[in-house]
Design a protein around this nucleic acid. Structure first.
Lengths: 180, 180
DNA sequence: TAACAATACGGAGCGCTGTTCCGTTTAGCA
DNA sequence: TGCTAAACGGAACAGCGCTCCGTATTGTTA
């Protein structure tokens, strides 16, 4: 579990830019998006991407971890900035759906190798955040955090390049249904 | 469920040759083997492969179905030709392991689309054959066919390109252990 | 502040892939 | 034995992940 930081300022800046660009491209075009597209989106050359992430799989994993962290951090801050605790929950779930796109592609990338440990890390980090949001929303319908996250995850299965299935809308309905 | 046959003799012959060659290459190099390698193994041009199987995925699926049929047909015939019912079972399981290589690669090819229906077809066709072989072997240890097939399948998980894990040997031990 | 390593960057290019295209060969029929 | 439709072979194409190296930027030292 080493956390090595680049030394120069531009390198550190580019690493973050790449992570964000990759996440955006993954959401827009799926995890199969060409590395070239990510480089273009980030306004960066191919060499830069491959110096930071030696392989395509490394990039996907890094985005995954980055998204987990972003999702975890967004929970508390949304509770402060959003118009209501329920809105905070809705917005957080929206981030969570973006994140799931990367997560679903992950299984194809690391074939059983380290998937379980990454998945455990994901649960350990995100379930408490979701629980906190649920608690703040003071819902009448009792749902456990893990339960809700699993439900949202399942709604998003097989949503890629399927114009007849708008997973995000369904998730929105589910969340809306929580206050009744 | 259409079963269209080519008209000319060479076309029909090549289709079978390709199916066998592909199966052999998949066992030797995994399902990620390049189409070129399969064409070479079959002694056939690229065009021929793509006229019979419009896409790489189609070829894999065709091999899968072909293997299911071959496995199903091999059961009764092994019972007649093998030196003993137990030997027949062992030889059949060996074929089954070959077949699993293709099966495991299948999940990556058709992403949830028609995998379930193919899997159902596989169970429906093969479980009775395995049951018949178990019955003939008159084992003292009671094992159900589905149970045994699942066990063998699990032993073969993650066996690709792993020199430290000889799944076939372990399966052999399992079968040997059945008579006790 | 100027000069200089050290570090990071960009993108053309390599090797590999699945797939297509079309000139050539062959099977089956009159 | 021709003739034609069907099938074949493999060079060529497009797109991919990844590498390489000349160029530009950064931070340090005088």
């Amino acid at each position: 579990m080493s956390e090595s930081k680049p030394k120069r300022a531009d390198a550190r800046r580019n690493e973050k830019t790449l992570l964000d660009a990759a996440a955006a491209v993954f959401v827009a075009s799926g995890v199969d998006a060409p590395v070239r597209d990510i480089a273009a989106k980030a306004g960066v050359g191919m060499g830069t991407i491959y110096r930071h992430f030696p392989t395509r799989a490394d990039l996907i994993i890094a985005v995954y971890r980055h998204q987990v962290e972003a999702c975890a951090a967004a929970g508390p801050s949304l509770l402060e900035t959003a118009s209501s605790p329920h809105a905070a929950l809705a917005q957080w779930i929206d981030l969570f759906v973006d994140f799931l796109v990367t997560k679903h592609g992950l299984a194809g990338v690391l074939q059983g190798d380290g998937f379980d440990s990454l998945h455990a890390y994901f649960l350990e980090r995100l379930v408490p955040v979701c629980a906190r949001l649920l608690e703040a929303a003071e819902l009448t319908a009792r749902v456990r955090a893990l339960e809700l996250m699993r439900g949202v995850g399942n709604l998003c299965v097989g949503a890629e390049d399927n114009p007849d299935y708008d997973a995000r809308r369904l998730v929105g309905l589910l969340i809306a249904g929580l206050r009744a």
